[in-house]
């Protein structure tokens, strides 16, 4: 298996604050990779750089062998990069179904005139999309009962699921999940973890996630990278990272690390 995403010496600063400082990270194709770290460590900055919102001052981002560092977000979407947001960024005025359909936007062809006249090809494309979404996404994520509801009326856990559905509709090669289980109860968390594993195993998508819930990270991830103050301080398989003194120190502070009282950073940083 090759690397699907390679981040090389990425640096990003806002004014004098170094959000990312020479970050290097590789994501194995077909893996589930987690980026963890205390609040303000630069995890979301890293995601925003990969999806194209932030323009890093130095370094490269290579996706499937091609340099995407300077590409605009829509172009990255076309290459097969999808993401969800920490604060859920669904289209409030639309139904669940329309939100999911939007995920396919970049892979569809209907132009303005064909759309307005709703000609044969336009109609066929829309119907094929509907059938595919119903079959592969709505049933899979168990959201068939809410498909025609506006997202604004949904509870938090379901919205997260709809956002995942929308990202799946993009047929991603690499799926970035920004805190997929934050704020969820145990049952919702377990559902979500199961979905993420299924997506990796059954659809062959590679997943890169940011998460504070260490149980989930340790359970489902193949590889973990730890950020602190914009630098990668450790990387490797979950078990190895858990025992790494630098990681324990980052999470619990210097004293805890030295007195050896610290157990594994099971529940991560605050919030």
């Amino acid at each position: 298996m090759g690397k699907i995403l390679e981040i090389e010496n990425l640096s990003l600063a806002f004014g004098g604050v170094h959000a990312l400082d020479e970050v290097s990270l590789a994501v194995e194709e077909g893996s589930i990779t987690a980026v963890i770290g205390p609040n303000g460590a630069g995890k979301t900055s890293l995601f925003n750089s990969v999806s194209g919102f932030y323009k890093p001052q130095a370094g490269r981002i290579v996706f499937e062998g091609s340099d995407i560092t300077r590409l605009k977000p829509p172009r990255r979407a076309a290459l097969g990069l999808a993401r969800t947001f920490q604060n859920i960024a669904l289209f409030q005025g639309m139904t669940v179904l329309d939100n999911i359909k939007l995920g396919r936007h970049v892979h569809m062809k209907t132009g303005l005139l064909a759309a307005g006249f709703y000609l044969g090809p336009a109609q066929r494309e829309e119907m094929a999309l509907r059938a595919e979404i119903e079959r592969d996404i709505i049933d899979f994520l168990e959201i068939d009962h809410i498909r025609n509801l506006p997202v604004a009326v949904l509870p938090y856990g379901l919205r997260k699921r709809v956002e995942l559905a929308r990202a799946l509709a993009m047929r991603p090669k690499l799926l970035l999940l920004d805190e997929p289980v934050a704020g969820m109860n145990r049952e919702e968390t377990e559902d979500m973890a199961r979905f993420v594993l299924d997506i990796q195993q059954e659809r062959g998508a590679t997943i890169l996630l940011v998460e504070h819930d260490m149980d989930v990270v340790m359970d489902i991830c193949d590889h973990v990278a730890v950020l602190n103050f914009g630098r990668v301080i450790a990387a490797g398989p979950p078990d190895a990272v858990r025992e790494n003194p630098a990681v324990i120190e980052a999470y619990l502070g210097v004293e805890a690390a030295h007195t050896g009282e610290a157990a594994s950073p099971r529940h991560g940083g605050p919030g």
């Binding site: 999806s51 194209g52 919102f53 605009k72 977000p73 829509p74 979407a77 076309a78 999808a82 993401r83 947001f85 960024a89 669904l90 289209f91 409030q92 005025g93 639309m94 329309d98 359909k101 939007l102 995920g103 396919r104 936007h105 970049v106 569809m108 209907t110 132009g111 303005l112 759309a115 307005g116 829309e126 929308r166 993009m170």
Partner: peptide, 20 residues
């Protein structure tokens, strides 16, 4: 898709970009 894209621009232009 065209109409959906218009609405996406209205509702949340940042995530619209991520949708391509």
């Amino acid at each position: 898709r065209i109409g959906r894209a218009f609405i996406a621009v209205r509702d949340r232009d940042i995530s619209a970009e991520v949708m391509g």
